[in-house]
């Protein structure tokens, strides 16, 4: 992708300012939050916005651990792991949430390709785990049935 020099400079400045505001120098991350992806209102929109490509279904390559039925939609444990080599990021998307993109973990070689967290689900929805490895984007989904929603209301 071609980026205009002026825009690249702007991005660099933005990152530098952001890093100074929120992070000690030792933890300076060379990444920016994908704001647009968090504004997308569909799972595929989030994936496109994050990676600039569609994800390929690969249920055999990704381990997605979620409960079949979540009694409390406010706290749904999610674990995503993979044996793929060169994993760059692990992303959790809840298709039917108002903001589908939930969490986007950017990994380095120092950590194993498995992360766990807990998410809120407004209603029953497929939970989508997206893994980017060696430039390719894979996903798998699992349906989670929610009996009590976790998004206010």
């Amino acid at each position: 992708m071609e980026i205009l020099p002026a825009r690249r400079g702007f991005l660099k400045n933005l990152m530098a300012v952001g890093a100074m505001l929120v992070l000690p120098a030792s933890l300076l991350a060379a990444l920016v939050r994908p704001q647009a992806a968090f504004k997308a209102d569909s799972a595929t929109g989030s994936v496109q916005s994050l990676f600039g490509q569609d994800a390929v279904e690969a249920a055999d390559k990704i381990r997605l651990k979620v409960p079949d039925i979540a009694e409390n939609g406010a706290v749904v444990p999610v674990t995503v792991g993979t044996d793929l080599e060169g994993v760059e990021s692990i992303t959790i998307i809840i298709d039917n949430n108002p903001t589908p993109l939930s969490a986007n973990f950017n990994l380095t070689d120092a950590v194993s390709a498995e992360v766990s967290t807990r998410v809120k689900m407004g209603k029953s929805s497929p939970v989508r785990a997206v893994v980017k490895a060696q430039g390719k984007v894979y996903y798998t989904t699992k349906e989670v049935k929610v009996t009590i929603g976790g998004c206010g209301g």
């Binding site: 939050r33 968090f38 406010a74 973990f105 950590v111 807990r118």
Partner: peptide, 10 residues
Amino acid sequence: MTAYWGTSVS
């Protein structure tokens, strides 16, 4: 590791 979260993390 750097994580970016939205509103739907518990």
